[in-house]
Lab assay of single mutants.
Amino acid sequence: TELRLDINGREIKVDGADKETLKELLKLAEKNNDEKAIRIIRHLLER
């Protein structure tokens, strides 16, 4: 399955993203107070 998050109005594919990319996405999600995106990205970073 493909995991996509809508961050800042942009749909971004997050599964398969490297750790650096995920960290950047996490910063974006935190800036937007997007709890769902934050939770998902943190979960991916823990893998």
Rank of each mutant, 00 (worst) to 15 (best):
T1I: 07
T1A: 09
T1R: 05
T1D: 15
T1G: 15
T1Q: 09
E2T: 01
E2D: 15
E2N: 09
L3S: 15
L3G: 15
L3Q: 15
L3K: 14
L3C: 14
L3D: 15
L3M: 06
L3F: 01
R4H: 15
R4F: 15
R4V: 15
R4T: 15
R4W: 15
R4M: 15
L5A: 06
L5N: 08
L5Q: 09
L5R: 02
L5Y: 02
L5P: 15
D6A: 11
D6Q: 14
I7H: 02
I7L: 08
I7E: 06
I7V: 03
I7Q: 01
N8I: 02
N8Y: 02
N8W: 02
N8M: 09
N8R: 01
G9S: 01
G9R: 00
G9W: 01
G9T: 00
G9N: 03
R10C: 13
R10D: 13
R10T: 14
R10W: 07
R10Y: 12
R10I: 15
E11R: 04
E11D: 04
E11K: 06
E11I: 11
E11S: 12
E11H: 06
E11L: 10
E11N: 06
I12F: 13
I12R: 02
I12C: 04
I12P: 00
I12M: 06
K13S: 10
K13W: 14
K13D: 09
V14F: 04
V14K: 00
V14G: 02
V14A: 04
D15Y: 02
D15N: 12
D15R: 04
D15M: 05
G16V: 15
G16E: 14
G16W: 12
G16A: 15
G16M: 14
G16N: 08
A17R: 12
A17H: 08
A17T: 13
D18Y: 03
D18R: 03
K19F: 12
K19C: 09
E20R: 10
E20K: 09
E20F: 04
T21R: 12
T21A: 14
T21Q: 10
T21K: 12
L22A: 01
L22P: 00
L22S: 00
L22M: 07
K23P: 01
K23W: 07
K23Y: 09
K23E: 08
E24I: 11
E24T: 10
E24P: 02
E24A: 10
E24S: 10
L25W: 07
L25C: 05
L25G: 02
L25P: 00
L25T: 03
L26D: 00
L26G: 02
L26K: 03
L26V: 04
L26C: 04
L26F: 05
K27A: 11
K27R: 10
K27H: 11
K27D: 11
K27G: 10
L28N: 04
L28H: 07
L28R: 03
L28G: 04
L28I: 09
L28K: 03
L28M: 11
A29W: 01
A29C: 10
A29F: 06
A29G: 03
E30N: 06
E30K: 06
E30L: 09
E30I: 09
K31W: 12
K31T: 08
K31V: 13
K31I: 12
K31A: 12
N32T: 14
N32W: 14
N32K: 04
N32C: 13
N32L: 14
N33R: 09
N33M: 10
D34G: 02
D34C: 06
D34K: 02
D34T: 03
D34V: 05
D34I: 06
E35V: 10
E35R: 05
E35L: 08
E35F: 06
K36M: 10
K36T: 11
A37M: 03
A37L: 05
A37S: 06
A37D: 02
I38S: 11
I38Q: 08
I38M: 07
I38E: 07
R39Y: 07
R39V: 12
R39H: 12
R39E: 13
R39W: 05
R39T: 13
I40N: 03
I40M: 07
I40E: 04
I40Y: 03
I40C: 11
I41D: 00
I41M: 02
I41V: 06
I41R: 00
I41A: 01
I41W: 00
R42M: 09
R42K: 11
R42Y: 03
R42D: 06
R42V: 08
H43E: 12
H43Y: 04
H43A: 10
H43C: 09
H43M: 13
H43G: 12
L44I: 12
L44H: 14
L44Y: 14
L44F: 14
L44V: 12
L44M: 08
L44C: 05
L45P: 00
L45V: 06
L45T: 04
L45M: 07
L45C: 03
E46M: 06
E46T: 07
E46L: 07
E46H: 06
R47Y: 13
R47N: 12
R47L: 12
R47C: 09
R47F: 08
R47G: 13
